[in-house]
Design a binder for these strands. Structure first.
Lengths: 328, 328
DNA sequence: ATGCAGTATAGATAATCATCTATATCATGG
DNA sequence: CCATGATATAGATGATTATCTATACTGCAT
């Protein structure tokens, strides 16, 4: 038996004949002419090198070999029908996997979205990578992930972006700070104090520093800590002041005060970034659609800024990369 | 996904690529050129409508859909490899089925052959049909069986025959019969006695009657019984005489005497008959081969008359009917 | 940067396939 | 025995496939 000439179509035809017990009837069912089916059967029997059917009392009945072929065919066709279902689920975004890379600060909010999403799509494997802005940029350049969350995206030459959440940076001080509660503090009044800063490469630090530069200000003494949490706790403990994303503060933050500094909060937005040169996994697309529809249910209204519909529209329009996929 | 254009060959190629992680390497293994394999992959991805491979660090790695396709392909190819094994077993006669139709009298010997055979080929299903000559002729004409055992075959226009066993018909009488033990009895001396005969349509009866006709004799009173066993018991009980196949008599038959009538035993041979217009099942062929080789171990030497080698040779030479098989 | 190994694309060709119509053969049930 | 429905065969055709050689692109290692 030469498997090379074996076609799934051939098996389908054969199964139809065995089922109906008649070549002509199978031809009708398959919308083919009777000679076509006859010939297909002959080819099939030729490639297998065994007779498959006998006509008994006018009905086509499988021989010994034919019976086994029928069983094999049904299994095999069934397996590929399953595979087809799998593909459909994959395409519908109900199944599959995607990876998303978050800038550190975003990890305080994104779970609010990812939680309900993976509740709704339990068959999708999500991998979340977290790091500071610089690390995310590296991942982005190496095309390691399906989705990225940045506040300020890198060059959008090969990517599309869609804002979805406001990310205000506020100045914080320990609860009992002398300026806590005062209106319209001037930033210059704070420069003498020690500031707790994230590491270079952090988006929060980058935004803060460029804002300072715009104002023509520069900081006094600083202390560097590579984690928002550590900084928050540090501020509460009186180590100094800081500028942090409002998302970092717990809803009730009795040990920390937000200072109403003129010019603050620094407004920025988180956005989903999608590379245009990498085929977006169906699951990732499904997640974006989910985010577009359910963002309002997952985050506080004051942070809402959902421009994902626009992103999705542009993704639909984007030229699809070739089917074999490209290098990540 | 359009299953119509899916080929087993295509899956083989795909599996080779996934296994080796390289298109060029797969091409080498398959004795194809690299562009051929590239193109096959493209076609495969096109018919499935999903990218299947991504090149990661220079290796071809399946995507989500590709991984599932790989699993499906392996299962499916494995299933057909099994089917191929099955076919091989079928062709080797190690497996399958055949039916054999025996003239009544032959049922006393054939089990000696069928027993060891089905011991040796436990995977073969054998169906044995038993009846008198007339019934066997009907089955033969309707092509209902793979093999037939006759003493005198019907027309051999569409069949081949091979003798394998002597079938002497002897005259039997109850133990104490007046002629028991006498040498050279003349048949005429017995005609006054009642003869127990099989039914018309029986081969034994036919042979006996045509022998009588040759001798210019005719029987006196008769009694008809449709079974060799019944006749044998009847003779032992003194109901009359009979002419029976020697095979019908048990090895020790103290209650019955064989009369040494001049011109008896009537010599005949059982033969296997194979229709030439019906494709012989591999299993049946295997049985004939087994019989040819093991007949000597299974029956008493004095009955041996093995001409099956000749039959087998002629079977090999016979033109093979078309693959789809013909009507039984 | 340079070259190599791997991959993709283009263009060509012979083979095979799927499919048709038309016709012959066969089997079966009145 | 014949009419009818089922199957096989023949011949034709356009589409698809398998496969090649030649060449272009691409990314990694030197």
């Amino acid at each position: 038996m030469n498997i090379r000439h074996l076609t799934f179509r051939l098996l389908q035809v054969y199964v139809a004949v065995v089922r109906s017990g008649s070549i002509s009837e199978a031809a009708r069912q398959l919308h083919l002419t009777q000679p076509t089916v006859s010939l297909q059967l002959k080819r099939l029997a030729d490639t297998l090198g065994e007779p498959l059917l006998e006509s008994r009392h006018g009905r086509q009945v499988p021989t010994e070999a034919g019976g086994e072929l029928y069983r094999a065919s049904r299994e095999v066709l069934g397996r590929f029908a399953d595979f087809d279902d799998y593909l459909a689920a994959l395409r519908g975004g109900e199944r599959g996997r995607f990876s998303i890379a978050l800038v550190n600060t975003a990890q305080y909010v994104l779970p609010r979205l990812l939680g309900p999403y993976s509740q709704a799509f339990p068959e999708v494997d999500v991998t979340v990578h977290i790091g500071n802005r610089r690390q995310m940029l590296t991942r982005f350049e190496r095309q390691e992930d399906d989705l990225y969350v940045f506040s300020h995206p890198p060059s959008l030459a090969h990517a599309l972006a869609g804002r979805f959440l406001r990310n205000p940076l506020v100045a914080v001080a320990p609860r009992g700070h002398r300026l806590a509660g005062r209106e319209r503090i001037d930033m210059a009044e704070l420069l003498g104090e020690r500031f707790l800063l994230r590491e270079p490469g952090s988006a929060t630090r980058m935004l803060f520093e460029s804002w300072l530069q715009e104002q023509g200000l520069s900081l006094g003494p600083t202390l560097q800590m590579a984690s928002n949490e550590a900084i928050r706790v540090g501020v509460a403990a009186g180590m100094g002041l800081a500028v942090l994303s409002e998302h970092v503060l717990p809803p009730e933050h009795s040990d920390i005060a937000i200072l109403t500094v003129a010019g603050l909060p620094i407004e920025s937005h988180w956005q989903f970034i999608v590379r245009r040169d990498r085929r977006l996994s169906h699951a990732a697309l499904g997640f974006l659609r989910f985010a577009e529809g359910h963002l309002g249910d997952c985050v506080e209204p004051r942070f809402l800024s959902n421009e994902l519909d626009d992103l999705l529209r542009r993704l639909d329009a984007a030229p699809v990369p070739p089917l074999r996929g490209s290098d990540p």
